[in-house]
């Protein structure tokens, strides 16, 4: 069997606002506009990924929160309605997706062998979390690629960001090994925002962009620091800074998604491509691609 590879890694945040503003037919609410810089960023990402052949997308979502171990979707297909529990006014999305169960099982086995606590999710009535759906839809709205969804084990909350880092570095390595063993070409999605302090009120017209800005300047500075490191190809430094970033910017890196992906990519030293940055209800969001295939497909 050909050795599998990770062809790209993407920081692919999941604000439901972006789907809302795109007005896809699957989403019930309708918008006038909004968050264009981020939506155009996703457009650039999609164009870039069109140049790459791949079989599956693997996403680690902060909104599938598991307090015991790391879970993997293990049912071949799902069809249901996803209603965002925080923004139900914006996101009521009818989804239909397929899961690459063999790849998920391989990943679960590798993670378990690496000493992590794991579980396959086999319940057909399970509702796929909206983080997974938003990131996958914005990356590949055709929904023609099977996905693997990995839960966010909440080690940051239970122990500390340092413990989370230890788990996610291990999970990243296990993911890479599983993909290589699978013979498949895979795109990884880290479905998280950067700084993650929200406003606690919403404007009457949610897409009123005169109200949209970062929650505070300190968070913006942190976001720019992290993005600059991405642009410079300094992935190891990013990972080293994640505990401080998580604490000081209330960053959604607490989920482990970014650490997992950079570990799976084996800490790329080439510059990442920043497709867009913008805020959503005060949080900082960047769409960033590590085009691994164009840099030798090392993983």
């Amino acid at each position: 069997m050909t050795k599998g590879s990770i062809v790209a890694g993407v920081l692919a945040p999941h604000p439901p606002h972006l789907v809302y503003a795109e007005n896809p037919e699957q989403n019930e609410p309708r918008a006038e506009c909004g968050w264009e810089t981020l939506r155009w960023g996703y457009e650039r990402l999609r164009k870039s990924l069109e140049q790459i052949e791949y079989d599956s997308m693997v996403v680690l979502s902060p909104h599938w929160q598991t307090y015991v171990g790391t879970h993997f979707l293990g049912v071949p297909s799902f069809k249901s309605l996803s209603v965002d529990p925080i923004f139900p006014n914006l996101f009521r999305f009818h989804y239909e997706l397929t899961v690459d169960v063999p790849l998920a099982e391989t990943m679960e086995a590798h993670a378990r062998e690496a000493g992590l606590v794991t579980k396959m999710m086999r319940n057909p009535d399970f509702r796929v979390d909206y983080g997974t759906i938003v990131s996958c839809h914005l990356t590949r709205p055709e929904w023609d690629k099977p996905i693997v969804s990995i839960s966010s084990h909440r080690a940051t909350q239970y122990f500390s960001a340092d413990v989370m880092q230890g788990h996610m570095l291990k999970l990243g390595r296990a993911t890479r090994e599983a993909i290589e063993a699978s013979g498949k070409r895979v795109v990884l999605l880290a479905s998280n925002s950067l700084s993650h302090r929200h406003f606690t009120s919403e404007s009457e017209v949610p897409e009123d962009m005169s109200r949209e800005h970062i929650y505070h300047h300190g968070q913006y500075l942190w976001d720019m620091k992290m993005i600059e490191l991405m642009r410079q190809g300094r992935a190891r430094e990013i990972v080293e800074l994640i505990p401080d970033f998580t604490e000081q910017a209330v960053a959604e890196t607490d989920s482990g998604a970014l650490t997992w992906m950079l570990s799976a990519l084996d800490f790329p030293e080439y510059p990442a491509e920043v497709h867009g940055y913008g805020t959503v209800i005060g949080t900082g969001n960047a769409i960033v691609e590590w085009p691994q295939a164009r840099h030798g497909g090392a993983a």
Partner: peptide
Amino acid sequence: PSVIGHQIQADPEPVWTHVDELFHD
């Protein structure tokens, strides 16, 4: 959990089949 203040359930007859995200088994 909620972010935009507090939310209050007002659907007169919510109907669904629920599966817990952690104890789905």
